[in-house]
Design a protein around this nucleic acid. Structure first.
Lengths: 210, 210
DNA sequence: TCCAAAATAGCATAAACATGCAATTGACAA
DNA sequence: TTGTCAATTGCATGTTTATGCTATTTTGGA
């Protein structure tokens, strides 16, 4: 029995084109197409789709909200984001909300078909430039360390702060006095523009300084 | 002028096969092939390769160490990991160390060629199962929240802890007394198995609880 | 309806932390 | 050679945290 697909896309012509092309494939059937996600919950309850092609920028309930609504109710549905948007903020919002793929609209129809095939086989289709952004997100911003201009020792102390060491333990681990630890931490706070250890830890982890 | 490729691979037969196949392509030339990374620094200084195919599990200096050495000296070299290893620890070590792609060895030669082409065009080739692991890493482990069994209020307080709020500020933000905040934080520490705020923040961010 | 968990609140105390000020030493660059 | 910066140490003070114990009120299920 065919793979059930639903399309959310506010551009009427594109939506029709996708519907006709996908419906024309032997193994696929488009069981619904909509111009926004306002009825998303009801729609997935009724149609129980296998795959959803999801635009992001839609009037009313947009694709990211739709993604969250649908993943909440029916996490087994594969959702492939299909958008012109390349900004990292929305990209990572989608990834964190459970998107199974992220395909740019400049992609050929053939590649979209491959993407659908890909998710159905347990993969995660990403357009090349998207994959690159994702990979880069794992690397410390080269500026992070320089930006804050932490010295080597300060970085070391920060590392222990993140591990939850007390000042005494840090002093012992670095073989320096507690007062010196205090001094370093004081400087770390100044350089990171924070006022307490927890905030420093959060910033260190967020900016991948440690 | 052709794309210069270097292969690091300890399996002699596979290395020869890759060398012959890649060298047979019109646009590619294999300017070196080695069984481990012990001379990696010198090799890249001398050959200035465009692309490196890097195995991980090699005797002597392994592929992850090699990756780091090479990215340090010559970050513009594209390095595609080529391995049987699928464990997440090494995968994410590679990504954090600047790998430009991660291709499993069960991949066809055609797909390896596509991967090389892909990096050269600014992409990030990932085998489907790898791409899936990467995407999943952005989502909170479904167990995280349940694993620690934090209540709603505790999660809220933890969120403020991560933001560096003092107990007073949290009390004010939640419209409860400082003593109650204390109580919640006490419970959070117990549930997360930590002893101080910084450690709680680190764990919360690491496990994507907030 | 009644239990269990969650949320609330209070008090007390010791330890840890944040911050202001000051000073010495060594290394590396202008 | 001189000066800047990192690293080091000290001290003092007030604030914030961590933790022990107890107790009341809500609230969501069984």
């Amino acid at each position: 029995m065919p793979v059930r697909i639903i399309i959310f896309e506010d551009n009427h012509r594109l939506r029709q084109s996708l519907k006709i092309l996908l419906d024309g494939m032997e193994n696929y059937t488009v069981c619904g197409d909509y111009e926004n996600c306002s009825q998303a919950a009801m729609i997935v309850d009724e149609h129980r789709p296998d795959v959803i092609i999801m635009d992001i920028d839609m009037p009313g309930v947009n694709g990211i909200e739709g993604l969250r609504i649908i993943k909440e109710r029916r996490p087994q549905t594969y959702i492939i984001m299909h958008t012109v948007l390349e900004d990292e903020e929305r990209l990572f919002q989608c990834l964190c909300s459970g998107a199974n793929g992220y395909i740019l609209k400049n992609t050929s129809f053939i590649n979209l078909l491959e993407a659908i095939d890909n998710v159905l086989h347990g993969g995660a289709p990403l357009s090349p430039t998207i994959a690159k952004k994702v990979l880069q997100s794992f690397q410390a911003a080269p500026s992070a360390r320089l930006q804050y201009n932490l010295s080597e020792r300060e970085t070391e102390v920060l590392k222990y702060l993140v591990k939850g060491y007390s000042y005494k333990m840090i002093a012992s681990a670095c073989t320096i006095s507690v007062d010196t630890v205090r001094g370093h931490i004081r400087n770390i706070y100044t350089k990171l523009h924070v006022n307490c250890g927890r905030e420093a830890v959060a910033k260190a982890l967020h900016d991948k300084i440690v």
